[in-house]
Design a protein around this nucleic acid. Structure first.
Length: 822
DNA sequence: GACCTGCTGCGGCCTG
């Protein structure tokens, strides 16, 4: 028996799971593929031991191992997270050391010491655990080929997370490079649950291997159970709102019962508030409850992760910052506060509990308003029906290609034709046309049409006798390396204790509203602002809490299509009087009101409600397509209506529908509605109304950085957002004027349409609506579906001098009264 | 004193 397998079964005493066995067999047979494996089931060993077994088979004489010293880089492991890199290294080190393989193993991420980096500049270890960015960096050194020529297998961990991002594309390009140097190289990916695993495998393997690729599905789906805290009294439960502290007592009761828990929230400020609330009500838990989100200082987060790993925490309140990484033992209870947003997302979070094979993963939903009860019920249906979201791979992000061209030019140079073929072998650039390639080449060699006068943008020099393109100068190579990567983020303000450590970062706009002496809640503690200086807010601990919580302007993830459809189906259930779960029974009175005051929309109808309030005239429509689509749709409808007659219309959206508000009444018959809901000229109208130029301009900022047009400054002295903005705008304007066909501009527009507006989904929504009946209802009072939109509208537009909450409360009371009378 | 929506992730230089 192979010594590695022997180690696994005899020394460690493990019985391989089926998927581990299958993976090793496939790896020994020389195949590539993707493994779908639940967390905590030994996925590192599943893909990590095969290459070791292979090497042992090729070197059967153990006596000779010592003489081999450290073999060249044989196995490369790519992870999206630095924290995962060290966990993985620890797992892989075990068999290497126990078996006595002569392999060396090292990490290569941005935070390894400079001495290790210096050593790796000379020679790489036998096993290297790294990130997509660090791989790219290594590929940018002139001797890259010699260093990577012996790589026999590459493993990409958490591929589902990388695949649909530019980091994934960068990984694809790096893998294509390695495959060219060693065509027999095996590629293996690890992925959590997603809807398009086959495609994920194909993207990972690229053109050459896609046909022979294997897909191994791990353990039969682990059971996931979704439970929900159902409010005792729905009448007093909010119809809108997002904090959900209403259910705090029930959550505390649950926390009392368990030893350890993770409480996921959807936003950072929500996490801060929940953390503060828990500590306030359970003061004796101080030290056992922790907070974890992306704006906290890395050191604070690291500490929480360590304590979590050691099993010393009773509860961690977190955002998706704990979705991945941190190899801790499963917790007893997982909470999801607020909308689950997606089926896969809820499954992944549930998976943080009940790790043992056969154990059930459970998640307890904590709705923050009444309709979220339906979302949890819908997510359960989604999981049972295995209707899990897909992740869509990117199509030809030119900025990533441009960056890669300079990387490769610095990394030993390239032959143009060969590199074109290599790039086209990736899934992302499989349809790259000769013209597009030419454009990219021209852009890096001459600066394109617009920048040819600036030598600085001639980053790649044409062949000089050897047929190879090379980077123009070492200075350019150096600067390029500083900009490698595809993650861009704006500068944030550091929050620092006056005498002491940094607590994390908040947005400048938040601090700008405060004066010295004002208090706010951050990093789980009350703070008082002392002064601001150099993008740093100096604070001291305050004794009393303030309700002021930083708000970050983050992504606005919409309800996924799968979950939105499932929610829609739950309305059908209600229509058919099928109230089969606790959540639906709990919201029944609310749905009953919706039916009485308006209508429960059936699957084949689009409900349009109109109402009059002292703000003006409102139209509400409910396509159930998630907020991004509704944003596009709202803007489109407002635009088209104002084209018909001059009037000012504001649109407000949420995940279920949209509201159009106008000071004057908008009289529309069926035909008028059909016209404004038409798919004709959809993209043109969207571009016209969304001030697409402005959106594209903003999007271009990121593209310009990835493409290497903007130097963001040396580490530690990064340029301000304003500076970066100014230079990217300059490029935008120059391109728009002198190089209108610039592919980077085109990409900016594409990204706005596809990612920010989800045009594809919007178009599908409109097509569906075409086949639907339009049902129009005039409301006497706001319906339960309309109420959250109305409240959102007030919040966004500050339309009333009365305080927002007073107004909302007053309306809620009025509605309650009507409900009671009815 | 109450009210509050919006995620995550990486990398780099200089000197002797």
């Amino acid at each position: 028996m192979n010594v590695v397998r022997h180690w696994f079964t005899q020394q460690r005493g493990y019985t391989p799971f089926d998927f581990q066995q299958q993976t090793w067999d496939a790896q020994l047979a020389g195949a590539s593929g993707l493994v779908h494996a639940p967390t905590g089931m030994g996925k590192t060993f599943a893909v990590g031991l095969g290459p070791m077994m292979r090497w042992c088979d090729a070197h059967p004489d153990r006596q000779s191992w010592a003489a081999l010293k450290s073999p060249p880089l044989t196995m490369l492991w790519i992870t999206p997270l630095r924290a995962l890199a060290s966990d993985t290294a620890n797992s892989l080190r075990e068999p290497i050391e126990d078996v006595g393989l002569p392999w060396t193993l090292e990490l290569r991420t941005g935070d390894v010491s400079s001495s290790i980096k210096a050593r790796q500049k000379k020679r790489l270890p036998s096993v290297l655990v790294t990130t997509p960015e660090s791989l790219s960096l290594l590929l940018s050194y002139a001797d890259a080929k010699a260093k990577f020529a012996h790589v026999q297998s590459v493993v990409v961990d958490e591929w589902h997370e990388l695949m649909s991002t530019k980091r994934g594309t960068q990984t694809e390009l790096g893998l294509a490079r390695l495959r060219r140097w060693n065509p027999a190289m095996q590629t293996w990916g690890l992925s959590a649950t997603m809807g398009n695993l086959e495609q994920a495998r194909d993207v990972l393997l690229g053109r050459a291997k896609a046909k022979s690729g294997v897909l191994i599905r791990g353990e039969s789906q682990k059971a996931v159970r979704i439970e929900t805290i159902v409010p005792d009294d729905l009448e007093r439960f909010p119809w809108a709102g997002h904090l959900g502290l209403k259910l705090l007592p029930q959550v505390l009761d649950e926390l009392d019962k368990v030893g350890s828990a993770l409480l996921f929230t959807n936003t950072r400020s929500q996490a801060e508030l929940w953390f503060a609330a828990i500590v306030k009500h359970r003061p004796n838990w101080i030290g056992e409850v922790a907070l974890h989100h992306g704006s906290l200082d890395r050191k604070l987060r690291q500490k929480v992760e360590d304590l979590l790993r050691e099993g010393k925490l009773r509860c961690v309140v977190c955002t998706s910052s704990l979705d991945l990484g941190v190899d801790f033992s499963p917790v007893d209870r997982v909470f999801q506060v607020g909308s689950p947003k997606g089926v896969a997302r809820l499954m992944q979070r549930a998976g943080r509990s009940g790790h043992q094979p056969g154990a059930v993963s459970r998640v307890l939903g904590v709705p923050t308003h009444a309709f979220e009860l339906i979302e949890f019920a819908a997510a359960r249906v989604g999981i049972e029906g295995k209707r899990v979201e897909s992740r869509r791979p990117l199509d030809r992000p030119i900025d990533v290609l441009v960056q890669h061209l300079v990387t490769v030019a610095a990394g030993g140079g390239f032959d143009e034709h060969a590199l074109y073929e290599e790039v086209k072998a990736t899934y992302a650039f499989r349809d790259l046309s000769a013209e597009q390639w030419q454009w990219a080449m021209d852009f890096v060699t001459r600066g394109g049409k617009a920048l040819y006068a600036y030598p600085h943008y001639r980053r790649v020099a044409p062949p000089n006798g050897d047929g190879q393109y090379h980077v123009s100068s070492q200075q350019i190579a150096k600067q390029h390396r500083m900009g490698i990567g595809t993650i861009t983020s704006d500068a944030a303000m550091i929050v620092k204790l006056a005498r002491g450590r940094s607590l994390g970062t908040v947005e400048e706009s938040f601090i700008a509203r405060l004066k010295p002496g004002d208090r706010f809640l951050f990093a789980g503690q009350p703070l008082e602002l002392i002064k601001t200086q150099n993008m740093t807010a100096y604070v001291r601990r305050a004794t009393r809490l303030s309700g002021n919580v930083p708000r970050w302007q983050g992504g606005k993830s919409p309800l996924s299509t799968q979950l939105a459809d499932a929610v829609r189906a739950k309305f059908d259930d209600a229509l058919a009087e099928r109230f089969t779960d606790d959540e639906m029974r709990a919201v029944r009175p609310l749905l009953e009101l919706q039916r009485q005051w308006s209508r429960l929309p059936a699957a084949d109808e689009l409900l349009i409600e109109s109402a009059t309030s002292r703000e003006g005239h409102h139209l509400f429509a409910y396509p159930f397509q998630g907020r991004l689509v509704h944003e596009g749709l709202g803007a489109l409808l407002a635009y088209r209506l104002s084209q018909q007659a001059p009037r000012s219309i504001t649109a407000t959206v949420n995940d279920y529908g949209l509201e159009l508000m106008c000071p004057e009444p908008i009289a529309m018959d069926e035909k008028a509605w059909r016209d404004v809901l038409s798919t004709d000229r959809l993209v043109e109208d969207l571009l016209a109304c969304l001030n697409a130029t402005e959106l594209a301009r903003r999007q271009f900022r990121e593209i310009a950085r990835v493409a290497g047009l903007i130097f963001t400054g040396y580490p530690g002295q990064s340029k301000s957002t304003r500076q970066l903005q100014a230079s990217s705008e300059l490029f935008y304007d120059v391109f728009a004027e002198f190089d209108a066909d610039n592919l980077l501009l085109d990409q900016a527009r594409r990204e706005v349409l596809e990612e920010q507006l989800e045009v594809r989904r919007l178009k599908q929504a409109l097509e569906r609506i075409e086949a639907m009946r339009l049902v129009r209802v005039t409301l006497e009072q706001l319906s339960p579906l309309a109420f959250p939109l109305w409240a959102e509208h007030l919040r966004e537009n500050h339309v009333t001098s009365e305080h927002w909450s007073d107004r909302v409360r007053a309306m809620a009371v009025a509605l309650e009264k009507v409900a009671d009378d009815g």
